[in-house]
Every structure is written in structure tokens, then in C-alpha cells.
Design a protein around this nucleic acid. Structure first.
Lengths: 405, 405
DNA sequence: TATATTAGTTAAGTTAATTATTAAATGGTG
DNA sequence: CACCATTTAATAATTAACTTAACTAATATA
């Protein structure tokens, strides 16, 4: 509703967008083909192309050897170096950085390791900015050419102000306004977005979700989070909390026992943090398992990597734990799939290290319960999915903004 | 993508739409005000208005007494009798019919009772057509003026062909192509859609969901079904099965006991069919309850109405059953709310007859578990929600179609 | 070399917007 | 009561951006 009224300028900006998008996605392409595909007249395409050439968004890249006879076409190509994108991903155990072009290619990457174990300090933030500047310098890109900086962060972020709202691990950052600082630093637009949502966008545009209009990405890592692409677009919910399923309730809890309530949360049932916690406890209580062979001397140092090795080695205890994980997760995925009628669920996070022996039984279990098939796959882009998601929405942002008014 | 290229005609059709919508929603309104609101120039508005007057979609309804000085405006009003809508709702235990205008007003209603208890026979369908013709006649509306017929049906419907895909109760209708027959009968467009989705649209446009962009409607009746409005639009899912949560799994089932698996389905846990089934069984097994006072002589004839009366009367057994219902449902709603970050859930179906003593504890329980408030309300439109939903999407359909090309 | 073929441009015409001007209708004021 | 301020609506001229039609450009092929 109130979708602003039309005037000639609107036509132009729509057509500028459409042609740019087409050249970017299908280029190099001739004016004639653009006209055919978009059902625009040849003179219009020429006029709009002139406009784009003048702006530097599109370039002529010589003629192509013709198949038949006739004047050879002048090929148009998207100038991917028209601007650059910086993507920052705060997910996981370090900060990932990447500089990319407007085609979504990673040009150079970097990372910042937290200065203080698993907590992010204020100083880390400035290290990040320093690193980005270095990366840009290495690629000879001046700061002004950075069109968008996209920051993926855990928790819920206030989009307007740029402040974190709930991210215990990043407590020190709470008083930093990422948006403001980045805007100042690079004179560019800043997009701040939930890290899992970015991953899902990444998978949907470049990864396992290509071609699907509805999909759910679920990240099983230290914690659990999900994100959705609904009708081709990221769905963030009324309060930007869609997919925040850490408090999803498994099984029906007994409200008369509030002290055991937490045991019903998805974060307790499925997160790797919880899993490893249980393993340690069981070992303490005398549970036998090969897992100790991979981490001798000290139970307390056991990690999920050790667990994976033990599973691979066929350790009965770890296999049993995996089976329970599959069991619990299957019910959750079935319910999500039913509600949203999902064709595809993409699973990401460290859990993917469990490989085939995890996802295959999960597939079977889920599809035994849903009436319509739901395909389950692991993330294709892995740890890079957030970065790619950042590129994807940054590109959309740039395109939307280029021709507005 | 490939959102068709712009040309002057596109502007015109957009502006025709926008002005029509505005006049419909805010009318009577003057040309001057239309120009102000849509930020269009006065001559444009006049030209477009002329167009609409000529089409008969909009009418001049005399001048309004002016507040200050100046030429008094000519008020424009939407001609709600430009066309008519027929809405048919096959939900519940009878077939509801309504004829409405393009403003969404019900002009006349009717219903068809199934000829054979709870099963719908082929003949019922022709009774429906007969009834509609009578209603139209009573209101002196010629068939040609019917722009859209909207049919809400249970189960999943193939939108292209108009055939049912899964609706056991309507088995006899399986070989009837509703779309085709209605198209022939009324020479109008036919929309066939899931009944619960229609209800949700109704509530979101005319009822409890007005003003919300994201909401879930859950219908608890003989069976259980849900529908969603996501970003203001109905979400139907990749295979039109979104919200088909009858097989939602409550609690983690034991896959080694396939015979008891059905006990985990939402339909088993929450549907009124299942509830009354359990009540009968418990009574058989000697359970004491006041419910028998409301339906003496024969357990087998107990209905949900009797159950409601017993709850109202404070019967301990029925209260206990209600509590269990609340308990189970709360977990389901929490999980749906978390996944979609819902501000509002609208509960419909016969369950609403339980009133405050059902919804209030449910509200408390749900909001004890979700981090962000989820408002729970009963359907405002009740049994009419589907009809209103039919009007709503029919109107959208008419508007979309009026100015295309 | 002439011709067919395809690509791209130029010129004229069309649609539908805009701005600027004018006309219409009314209330208030000297 | 005439006249002016005010608001609404209509008319005229201008502008933006598309389309069709005619033309030029560049190549392959007969």
C-alpha cells in the first residue's frame, strides 16, 4: 500500500535497475539481447545503456565473434570494480573480514583473533578497522570506493541505532555504535545484521539454497539459531527475532518443576556447548568412551572435535549421544518444516563436522514424519556463508540505492 | 526478478490502482486531497479520475460543505456496486455462502446443510450453485456483475487445476473441478483456497489482526490447522501446505514403538475430535464427571458443547482436561512464536467456546516462556472469518486485474 | 561485389507525467 | 453588494521517457 505513485523518473530508475541487474547476472551481453529479454525497445536500451556507461556501472568489452552473419554486437559488462564491499562476520570464535567486489567475489580475506580467549574486547574492534584498512591497501582500493560495510553479529541488533541488544559474549561492545563508527571510518553505508540471517542469505544466493524460494537455515554450534528465506526474501520477524529458537521448547515441560525447565530448551538439547557438557559429566560419572583417547589426561579439555573423532572411530557412547541428537533434532525440523512447508533445510555450524553419519539418519527420520519431502543438506559455504551473505545483501543495497530518485 | 520493464502505460496503471485504492479506503475524498496524499500533480489526478469515472469505478457524490472559504471540493467515492463477489466457505459442518460488494460488505448470506450427515455429496455442490443464484436474484444482481467467486475448502487444493488433493471428507467432490464449473456458471474468475488461510486473511484485514504485518492464525476444531500472514501477505509455502500442522509432533516419540506414534501428533493432542474421544473413553472407564448431566442416557452423543458447559460449571475432570489442552498448546504456540517472532496469534475454531478460562491461562503460560511478548486473542469474526477472507482476496484480485495492461 | 543479416542509432510520434496559468465557486470584508 | 482571499478544478504548455519506423554500420556468404 501507498507504493509511491508513478512518474517518468520512476520508469527510468526501474529500467536502469533492470538492465544493470541483467548485465550483472547474464553479462557480457549485447544491447540487442537486453532488449529481447526485458521486452524493451532497442532505442530505450541504447539510451539507458548510455546512461549506465556514463555512470561507469557498465562497460563495453569489445565485440564478440559472431555466430552467423550480421553486424557483431558490442558486449556490455558489469563493472564489478565500480565499488567495493567490506563484510565482517563476528560469528564463531574469531572475526572474519573480507573485501569483495560488486559481483560478490572475495578479493582478499583476513581475520582477527580475539585478544582475550572467547570474549571480545573493545580493542578488538579497532584491530578490525585497522585490518580492513590494511586489506584495502593491499588491493589498492581507496576507502572512498567502499560502498557498503556489512557487519554480521550474534544476537539481535537494533537496526536504527546500530547497538547490540542481546549478546553476552560481546558485552564490551555494547557501548560501541558499530553503525556510526563504520560510517565515519569509511564514509559508506553500514548494514548491521544477525550473523545467522546473513549465513542463510549466503547459502540461498551462492550456496546450497540456490534456486529455492523458501528455506530454513539452522546453525548448530555453541548455540542454536535459525534463519529463514520466505518467498525469496529474508524474513526477520516483527522484532527482528525470527529464528531465535534457543528457547524452543522440546517436549512438554512440567511447570511445577521450574528448576528443571531449562532442560527443555533447544539450546540445552542440541547445542554443542550442552553436548560437550554432558559428555564431560558422563565421563566424570565413570562412562566408558574412546573419546578420552583423543584427549588424554584431562576431561575438561574435551572439545567437539574430539567427539567427532570418537564418532568416526565408532565409539558406542558417542554414537549413542549422536543418535539422541538426531532424534531430538528430527522432531524440531519436522515441526518447522510442517509449519512453513519447507522444501529445503540447510544445516550449518560445527555440527556439520559429524558428516554423513549425522545427516543421513536425520534425513530418514525427518522424512518418515513429514507428508511432503523436506531435503536436508549441509551448508555449502561453511564458515564463509556469513561473508557471502554480507556480499549478497550489500549488493542488493547498492543496486537499490544507485538509482533511487 | 524480471519485474517487467517500465513504460508510460505502467505508470498509468499503477496510478489508476493507487487512486482507486485510496478512494476506496479513504473516500469520499476530493481530487485535491488525493493529489496531496499520493504526491501527484492536480492535473494528473484529474486525468486519472476522468478515466475512472468513465470506467464507472469511481463516482462523484456531490460537494461537501466547506470548512473555510474557497471552492468546495467535488467528492469522489468508490462505486462499491461496480461488481460483486461471491464467497463460499466449505469449512466446518455446513457450507456458507455470501454475496458481497467490492467494499467487502456482506449483502446477503445463505447456507447449505449437507444432505448426508458429515459427508459432502456431489448433489450438495449443485445445491450450492442453486442457492447462489437465488441469493443474487433476491438482491437483483445479474450473474455478469459477479467478478470473482472465492471458494474456501479444507485440505490442499491444486490452484491451477482446481482439484482437491487431500480432503477425505469431500471425497465425493474429488472428480468435480470447482474452478471450471464456477467459471462456466458465472463467467467470472474463481479463486480456490484453503479455508484456514482464508480465515487468517479475514482476521488480518477485518478482524483481530488488523494492523499487524505478521501473524499466525490457528484453528482448533474437529482438526487443527494454521495459516500465516507474513509481511502483510498470506504465506502458503512451497507446496501450498504451510500451516498444515496436523502432524506436528508433540514430545519426542519413541521410534521403536510405531504403534503409539500417532499419539504424538498435534491432531491427536489438541483436536476436539480427539478430546471428545478421550472423554468418552474415560467415562467408559468409570471416570466421574458432571458432563454426563448435560448429555444423559448416552455417552456416545457427548459433544464439545457439553464439554464447555461442564467446564463452565466447574467440573473437575473437564477442568483437568482443559488444563492439559492449555499445557500442550502453550508449548506449540511458544515454538511457532519463537520461529516466526510473532506479535500476534489468533485462535479460532470451536475451541473459542471455552472462553476466558481457556485463553487466559494459555496467555500466561506462553508469555512465561517466550522472551518477547506474544499477544493471544480469539478470532473476532468467528465463523464468518473465511467469508471475509474470501472478500478480501477477491477484492485484491479485482483491483490487480482491473488495470493490468 | 552484391546481398542478406544482425546490431545499433536517429528521428518522429505517443503516453503520461509536470509546471504554470486560468476558471470556478465560495466566504469574508469594507 | 462589490471585491478580494482562498481553495478546487480545468486547461495549456512543457518535459521525460517510452515506442515505432527508418536508417546506418558491420559482418558473412553467395
Amino acid at each position: 500500500m501507498k507504493g509511491k505513485a508513478g512518474n517518468p523518473k520512476l520508469i527510468r530508475s526501474t529500467n536502469l535497475s533492470l538492465i544493470t541487474e541483467l548485465v550483472r547476472k547474464q553479462g557480457p551481453i549485447s544491447r540487442a539481447d537486453v532488449a529481447k529479454i526485458l521486452k524493451l525497445s532497442a532505442p530505450s536500451v541504447s539510451s539507458i545503456t548510455e546512461h549506465l556507461l556514463a555512470m561507469g556501472i557498465v562497460e563495453e568489452v569489445g565485440t564478440r565473434d559472431l555466430v552467423g552473419s550480421g553486424r557483431p554486437p558490442i558486449m556490455l559488462s558489469f563493472n564489478q570494480y565500480f565499488g567495493y564491499i567490506v563484510a565482517i562476520d563476528l560469528a564463531g570464535d574469531k572475526i572474519r573480514l573480507a573485501v569483495g567486489d560488486l559481483q560478490g567475489n572475495i578479493l582478499i580475506e583476513g581475520e582477527v583473533i580475539f585478544s582475550f580467549s572467547s570474549k571480545i574486547m573493545k580493542d578488538d574492534f579497532f584491530t578490525v578497522i585497522e585490518q580492513i584498512k590494511q586489506l584495502l591497501q593491499q588491493k589498492n582500493i581507496s576507502s572512498e570506493k567502499v560502498k557498503v560495510v556489512c557487519v554480521g553479529t550474534p544476537g539481535i541488533i537494533n537496526k536504527e541505532t546500530g547497538f547490540f541488544q542481546a549478546a553476552p559474549r560481546y558485552k564490551e561492545w555494547n557501548n560501541i555504535n558499530i553503525r556510526q563508527l563504520m560510517e565515519q571510518e569509511f564514509q559508506s553505508d553500514v548494514i548491521v545484521m544477525n550473523d545467522i540471517n546473513l549465513s542463510v542469505i549466503g547459502e540461498s544466493r551462492y550456496g546450497a539454497g540456490k534456486g529455492f524460494t523458501n528455506l530454513l537455515g539452522i546453525n548448530i554450534d555453541v548455540g542454536i539459531g535459525a534463519g529463514m528465506i520466505i518467498e525469496g526474501k529474508l524474513y526477520e520477524g516483527s522484532r527482528l527475532a525470527a529464528g531465535e529458537v534457543g528457547y524452543w521448547v522440546c517436549d512438554t515441560p512440567n511447570h511445577d518443576e521450574p528448576e528443571s525447565f531449562h532442560k527443555h530448551y533447544l539450546d540445552y538439547r542440541l547445542s554443542l556447548h550442552a553436548l560437550i557438557g554432558k559428555v564431560k559429566q558422563d565421563l566424570q560419572n565413570g562412562q566408558e568412551s574412546k573419546i578420552v583417547d583423543y584427549c588424554p589426561h584431562n576431561f575438561e579439555k574435551i572439545t567437539f572435535e574430539h567427539f567427532c573423532k570418537a564418532v568416526e572411530a565408532g565409539d558406542p557412547y558417542c554414537l549413542k549421544m549422536t543418535k539422541e541428537l538426531v532424534h531430538s533434532l528430527s522432531v524440531v525440523l519436522v515441526n518447522m518444516s510442517l509449519l512453513l512447508d519447507l522444501e529445503l533445510i540447510v544445516i550449518g555450524g560445527q555440527i556439520t563436522k559429524l558428516g554423513y553419519s549425522f545427516i543421513q539418519p536425520l534425513r530418514e527420520l525427518v522424512n518418515r514424519m513429514v507428508p511432503l519431502t523436506t531435503t536436508l543438506v549441509y551448508s555449502e559455504l561453511g564458515e564463509r556463508s556469513g561473508i557471502y551473505g554480507g556480499f549478497a545483501i550489500s549488493m542488493e543495497h547498492v543496486m537499490d540505492k544507485l538509482f533511487e530518485d
